[in-house]
Amino acid sequence: MNQPPKDFEVSQPPTDGITELSFSPVADFLGVSSWDNQVRIYEVQPDGSTVGKAMYAHEAPVLCCAWSKDGSKLASGGADKAARLYDLQSGQAQQIGQHDGPIRSMRWVDTPGQPILATGGWDKMLKYWDCRQPNPIASTQLPERCYAMDALYPMLVVGCADRHILIYNLNNPTTPFKSTQSPLKWQTRCVSCFPAGNGFALGSIEGRVAIQYVEEKDASGNFSFKCHRDSSQVYSVNAISFHPVHGTFSTAGSDGTFNFWDKDSKQRLKMFPTVGAPITATTFNRNGTIFAYAVGYDWSKGHQSAPATPKNQIFLHAAKEEDVKQRAPKKR
């Protein structure tokens, strides 16, 4: 009864915790960044099996990765304070950006045709790179260390330490369009933009998710809800991923479960039993048929609780249409 979902396991997974999963916008290529200093690219076959495609290294743990819009390059950033760009065609990785502290999060924010990478670091800086010159084309100070970011042109949302949330209009990328505090009372853990581009979801370390609209006229639709907690413990929400087609989203937590939700009807569409260890990263592929999630210890209980033989796995879940489709509001 309590079996884990029968999902496809990615072979030859990273040897340490997985920090971010990113699916190419044009193909079923999965980019994976890890604490083992490596970035890996897997190709997902139609039958669910995976083939290792490429791997390149940072000089320190890699904390984030993101595919370029045309799917030709994978960018990554890490504790070595460097942003690197891997070219799928040439098979070469090169450094394209530099921070004064570890780079925690990055997103491609370009308009089509001109690739621009935004990086946020623990040095409280937000920098924009055009991948051609060693200096950022723009940079701006953040109020705190960057913990999470997500972008959907022309919106960039940056979640920082101390619950700062900054929303940038990418037409004016150095001045926040809005600078606010998270509606959640605890540390921001993840940010994800609605595919409709009119808002974003925030996850905090206190098992809570906030749905926020950007425009004031939509503010009445803002709400937050609890999740990833049981009667005695509250787990952090480690990842939120929106379904690219249906606009529903997933949350995954330190409790090792993931759920699919519909924010508009305020329903949980589907919940899954625990996978036995925290889920550290999630993503949907470009058409939302594959939901990838990374399982491994997320350090939420500190160094002492790290398992002796850490297991790090990536699973590919075939997202069923009925589990991710929006649903009519339930009568209550």
Partner: peptide
């Protein structure tokens, strides 16, 4: 019974500690 936060350090993220 007052559920307990598994990770309750509001000032620093787990990744920073780990790094």
């Amino acid at each position: 019974v007052g559920p307990v936060l598994v990770y309750d350090d509001n000032a620093v993220s787990v990744e920073e500690k780990r790094a």
